[in-house]
């Protein structure tokens, strides 16, 4: 027993040592007094910025914006989340940060309904609450910060493909889900936009990959062989465009279609389409910069805790002008080309 007591003692030392290390390393904290030097006047404020999970490159890119804003504004920011997209753990973490008496929280909810109780809890403690990246519209959150509305994105996709194919011809839509609201809203907007502005563009079909890259690839192959006169593929989610590009490239290499006959547009994750942009299979895509979302989230919380408010068209440093529509803040999208694809950190 004496032996095991020693072991536990050793463990205790190890645990506390680790904690001390990680604290010194400042894995997630940006203590304003050390880093910013000069403007340490308003150091009392702290914000908790909570992505869906820690790990994916998308969130790491967002963290850069969050930390930059923390430095620029002289506020302490804590950027943390569970290692998986676990709603319960995420809510526990928000609750812990409320205990720490942060002044504001920015949450990308894993389950938009489940965060409602913890949000009202936060408001009762005068903590400002906003959502970012993903909204929880049925809660007491003050603002939602996103890149663009689904309708705007759908219209941008439609304009982009119509433009690339010269305003007439057959296109197919590729979606991640036929039922998810964020997909159907984009498809409806794109369809309506084409009907109104480019009546000669015909949408032959809409296929779903169920968020599976392999299935998206098979879908693209099937579309290419089913519609010999197809001129465009529109990807509505991250997995679609790279799969479409792969299928088109293979069809070109096999001699089944001519280079450049099928254009690709829609939403893209920069790192996934980088090679296709560079070799010309894809000309341009719509994307957004998560670091801008992160920056705007901290900036908005800072305004709210100062008793101020955001305004439509206001300029945010490092982000640009934002659109405010009711309780929704939009930072805008970027057109992704081979020239700027390396600038995105995800």
């Amino acid at each position: 027993m004496k032996k095991s007591f020693l072991r536990v003692l050793a463990l205790l030392t190890l645990v506390l040592g680790l904690v001390a290390c990680s604290n010194q390393g400042g894995a997630t904290e940006t203590p304003s007094e050390g880093d910013t030097g000069g403007d340490a006047a308003s150091t009392s404020k702290s914000f908790f910025i909570n992505p869906k999970s820690i790990g994916p490159a998308y969130w790491a890119a967002a963290e850069k914006g969050v930390k930059q804003a923390g430095e620029d504004l002289g506020v302490e920011v804590v950027f943390n989340a569970p290692s998986t997209t676990d709603s319960a753990q995420q809510i526990n973490m928000i609750q812990d940060m409320l205990t720490r008496q942060v002044n504001g929280v920015g949450v990308a909810p894993n389950d938009p309904e489940a965060v409602a109780p913890v949000f009202s809890n936060a408001l009762s403690q005068d903590v400002q609450v906003v959502t970012w990246d993903s909204d929880a519209p049925d809660t007491d959150r003050k603002y939602y910060i996103g890149a663009a509305t689904d309708a705007e994105l759908g219209e941008q996709f439609a304009e982009m493909i119509a433009n690339q194919i010269g305003g007439s011809g057959k296109v197919a839509f590729m979606v991640a889900s036929l039922s998810a609201q964020n997909q159907t809203a984009k498809v409806d907007a794109a369809t309506a936009y084409l009907e109104a502005n480019h009546p000669d563009v015909e949408v032959v079909t809409t296929v779903s990959s169920d968020d599976d890259q392999q299935k998206a690839y098979e879908n693209a192959q099937n579309l290419i062989s089913t519609y010999p006169d197809l001129k465009g593929l529109v990807g509505f989610a991250g997995a679609e465009a790279p799969a479409a590009a792969q299928a088109v490239e293979e069809a070109v290499n096999a001699g089944n279609i001519e280079q450049g006959k099928i254009k690709i547009a829609g939403f893209a994750v920069p790192s996934l389409v980088k090679e296709y942009l560079e070799n010309g299979t894809i000309e341009e895509m719509v994307t957004w910069d998560p670091s801008k979302l992160g920056y705007t989230t901290v900036y908005t919380l800072n305004l709210l805790t100062d008793g101020e408010d955001v305004e439509d068209g206001m300029e945010i440093p490092n982000v640009g002008s934002i659109k405010v529509n009711g309780d929704i803040i939009l930072t805008g999208t970027d057109v992704l080309t081979k020239d700027n694809v390396a600038d995105f950190g995800f």
Binding site: L14, S22, N23, T28, N80, A81
Partner: peptide, 22 residues
Amino acid sequence: LRNGLNLMGVSVLFQTVILGVL
């Protein structure tokens, strides 16, 4: 352990390591 590390703002990545050691 989870709660204390959260309050200190320690990244969840370190928390996982510490739990593993335990």
